[in-house]
Write a protein that binds this DNA or RNA. Structure first.
Lengths: 251, 251
DNA sequence: CCGGTTCATGCACAAACACGCATAAACCTG
DNA sequence: CAGGTTTATGCGTGTTTGTGCATGAACCGG
C-alpha cells in the first residue's frame, strides 16, 4: 500500500461515512497509529479534512451545511466581516455573494450607509431588509438548498447586467496559483458573473482557507483586488498575494 | 462518537428545537452529565449558545422576520395554510406569493411531495430549502423591506415566463365586486403577473378580509378560481363568491 | 427554609498525541 | 553501480486531551 493510496482511501472513507476514527484506520490499513496520525495531520494541513481528537471530520460539510457552517470560527468570520464592511463607501453598488461570512458582513454594514446591495442569498436579503438606507435587490434563480444561494442561467443573466463598484466573495478556497475555487459548478458560474461585472473584487477568507483549493476554479487569483482575512494569518501565507499586487487587509 | 460530533449534534438540536436540556443530552448521547456540562460551557464560551440552568438556549433570541404580523390570528392562518396545502398535487408547478399565510402554507406542504415551487419571498425560499422533494426558484427583483417580497420589472418579467399549474395569493382584501386588492402598486404588478400565467388561482383570506378592499386593484374577482378561508367565515359572506363559480374551501 | 437537582472544581486514569530517533527502502547522481 | 540523500515508517518517551468520579457550592420549587 503506497502512502498516497492510503490517503486517498482515508478521504474516500471520510466522504462516504462522514467521519473517520484514527483507531479504525490503524486496524484496517495495518499501519501504526503514528502513520495514520501523520496522514491525518498532513491532510489537514492541505485543507482536505478537519483533524479532531480521535479522528477526522469533513472540512466543510457535516449534516446541516448552512446552519452548522455558521458556527465554524465565528469570531474570525465576524472580525473579517467588520473589516470588510469598512470598504463599502456611500452610494456604491455592492454585490454580495452567499455564505456565512458575507451574511455577517451584511449585518456589519453601518446603519447610516446609503447604498445599493445586490445578492443571490435570501438570508442576506432578509437581514438587510431592516436596514433603512439600502436598496436590496435579490438575484433570482434556482435555490441551492444547502448553500442558500440562487444559481442557474437566470442568476447569471441578471448579474451580467450589473456594473458593480465592489463584489464581496465568500470564497471556499484561495490559492496563489490555482486561484479562487469553490465546491459547486453552478455556484462557480454565478460567482464568475459577479466578478466579471465588478470594479473591485474583495475575497473574504479566514486564514485556514489561504493556500487551499476546492475542485472548481472560479477565477485566477489576479481577478481578486483585495483580500480580507483574520489576524491569525501569517506573513508567509500572505506574501504571495501581496507579491501579486493584491491589497491584503487583516482584521 | 467524537467529541466534535457530539457538539455539532448539540448545536443541531438547539437549532431545530430551540432549546436543549442537559439531562436529555446525557441520556441520549450516553455520556456522563459532566461531559455534557463541559460541552455546553465551552460552546457558550465560543459564543455558539447561551448556557442556562438545566440546559442551553440559542444565543440570539431568535428575531424572526415580520414577527409582528405573523402573530395576528395565527391559528386561522395555520388552518387555512394546511387546507390550502392539500390542493397541491404531485409534480405541479406552484407559484407562492409572499406573506405570512403563504409562508405557513409552505411549511405545511407534505414531506413527500415532489413539485416545483416559484416564489418572490426569500423567507419562503429558505423555509422550503430543507424540503427534500422540491425545486425552489426565487424570483429576482427589488426587495420590499416590510413585506419581504421582490418586486419590480425584473420580477414581473421573470414571472411572465412561467406557466404555473396553481398560484397561491395571500390577499390583503377580497371583495365580490371590486376583486382582489392590495396596498402596494409594485406588489400589485407582481401579483398580476403571477395570476396571468397560472391555470388555477387560489386566494388565501381569513374571514375578516372577505368583503374588504384595499387601495390597489390586482385583478377582478373572476380571476380567482378557488378561495380558502377559515371556519369563522359565515355563509352570507361566502355566497357571492359561490355565485360567481368560485370553489370555496373552509378550513 | 428545605430537599432535590444542577453546577463548578479538583483529581485520576486511559486514550490519543507530538517529538526525536533509528531503520530500511526508494531515489538521485556522477 | 557505488555512495549519498531523501522519504516513509515504526518505536520509545513524555505530554496533552477527554472523560468520569467525588466533593462542596449554587440554584430552584414548594
Amino acid at each position: 500500500m503506497l502512502s498516497d493510496e492510503r490517503r486517498s482511501l482515508i478521504l474516500d472513507r471520510l466522504g462516504t461515512q462522514g467521519r473517520v476514527l484514527a483507531a479504525d484506520l490503524t486496524a484496517e490499513l495495518d499501519v501504526s497509529a503514528d502513520t495514520i496520525r501523520r496522514d491525518l495531520r498532513e491532510l489537514d494541513d492541505a485543507g482536505l479534512l478537519r483533524r479532531v481528537h480521535g479522528g477526522a471530520l469533513p472540512r466543510h460539510g457535516d449534516a446541516s451545511p448552512f446552519a452548522s457552517r455558521e458556527r465554524r470560527a465565528p469570531e474570525a468570520k465576524a472580525s473579517i466581516a467588520r473589516r470588510a464592511a469598512e470598504i463599502v463607501r456611500e452610494g456604491q453598488v455592492v454585490v454580495l455573494d452567499g455564505g456565512t461570512t458575507t451574511l455577517e458582513l451584511a449585518r456589519a454594514l453601518a446603519d447610516d450607509l446609503r447604498a445599493s446591495v445586490i445578492t443571490t442569498s435570501p438570508p442576506i436579503a432578509i437581514a438587510l431588509a431592516a436596514h433603512p438606507g439600502l436598496e436590496v435587490t435579490v438575484v433570482g434563480g434556482v435555490l441551492r438548498p444547502d448553500a442558500l444561494v440562487t444559481v442557474g442561467a437566470a442568476a447569471v443573466e441578471a448579474l451580467r447586467l450589473i456594473r458593480a463598484d465592489v463584489v464581496f466573495l465568500g470564497v471556499c478556497g484561495l490559492h496563489p496559483e490555482i486561484g479562487v475555487t469553490t465546491e459547486d459548478l453552478e455556484e462557480r458560474h454565478v460567482k464568475a458573473a459577479m466578478i466579471a461585472g465588478a470594479a473591485e473584487v474583495v475575497a473574504l477568507a479566514d486564514h485556514d482557507k489561504l493556500g487551499t483549493a476546492m475542485p472548481v476554479v472560479v477565477a485566477p487569483i489576479t481577478a481578486v483586488t483585495q483580500l480580507v482575512t483574520d489576524a491569525d494569518a501569517d506573513e508567509a501565507a500572505l506574501a504571495p498575494y501581496l507579491a501579486l499586487g493584491i491589497e491584503v487587509l487583516r482584521a
